[in-house]
């Protein structure tokens, strides 16, 4: 009797209980119970706690997880709501139980297999995950970044294009009126426009000048040729006439 602790039916303990002896609970306990011996939860006992003991015999009401190093027994009048963890578990006919049961052997087996599987799964999973995530992130992340940066560059370029378009727009004006272009080009103060205008406008001027000069030259050549031809014809006629005349 000295090694048995009894908690009477009118006792309510709220807190942690630790010990190395048998504990008979007839009252109420809320908290954690850790014993290296047997817990007897009597019919009038109510325990709302996580319990870790060597043996447990539940005839009362237990709400919480029960872990026993040796065995758990839920008697005919016992009520347990929670998870049971023990190598040996007895649930008598008439007992009420809701929760899960883990036999330590299988649980250790699962833990070992999980421990073994986890690093294996981690290594192959990490590589593809990292690669896929990196690739996906890079593909989905960098592309928009690149698209955004080009968009900025395009936006930077777009003002350059409109200037060119604006440059191009006056160009037909330039072609139409060469005098206006000469005034508009210094107003723009753009080297490209000046270069283009200078390049475009002088050929137009040169072409007109050349055409006029060419026409003049051609006319002069034709005239001269015609003169020479006429002269030659005349000369030939003269020669023809002359030999005839000479011959005559």
């Amino acid at each position: 009797m000295n090694n048995i602790t009894v908690i009477g039916p009118s006792i309510f303990i709220k807190g942690n209980i630790e010990g190395n002896e048998d504990l008979s609970v007839q009252g109420r306990i809320e908290g954690n119970i850790s014993l290296s011996n047997t817990l007897y939860l009597e019919e009038s006992g109510i325990v709302k706690a996580d319990v870790s003991v060597k043996n447990a015999v539940v005839s009362g009401v237990l709400v919480g997880n029960l872990e026993a190093a040796d065995s758990i027994e839920i008697t005919e009048i016992g009520i347990v709501v929670g998870d049971l963890y023990a190598p040996r578990i007895v649930i008598r006919d008439g007992a009420k139980f809701r929760g899960s049961i883990n036999m330590s052997v299988y649980d250790n087996y699962d833990n070992e297999t999980k421990k073994i599987e986890q690093p294996k799964s981690k290594i192959p999973t990490q590589k593809p995950i990292t690669t896929t995530t990196n690739s996906s992130v890079t593909t989905y992340g960098r592309k928009p970044v690149t698209t955004t940066t080009p968009s900025k560059t395009t936006t930077d370029k777009k003002p350059a294009f409109p200037t060119k378009t604006i440059e191009k727009k006056p160009e037909p004006v330039i072609k139409s009126d060469s005098v206006k272009t000469s005034f508009s080009n210094p107003a723009n103060n753009t080297t490209s426009t000046n270069q283009n205008s200078t390049k475009t406008s002088p050929p137009a001027m040169n072409s007109k000048i050349e055409q006029s000069e060419a026409d003049k030259i051609n006319k002069a050549i034709k005239e001269t040729i015609g003169k020479y031809s006429q002269d030659s014809e005349l000369d030939e006629k003269k020669k023809d006439s002359n030999p005839e005349q000479k011959s005559e």
């Binding site: 000295n2 009477g8 009118s10 303990i13 010990g19 002896e21």
Partner: peptide
């Protein structure tokens, strides 16, 4: 006494009751 707390037992918390209590722990 109805309730006995054995000599190896450690209780950290609150005990409320209406019956006699013997503390060995």
């Amino acid at each position: 006494s109805n309730t006995i707390i054995g000599h190896t037992l450690v209780i950290d918390g609150e005990i409320v009751g209406d019956e006699s209590l013997t503390i060995l722990g």
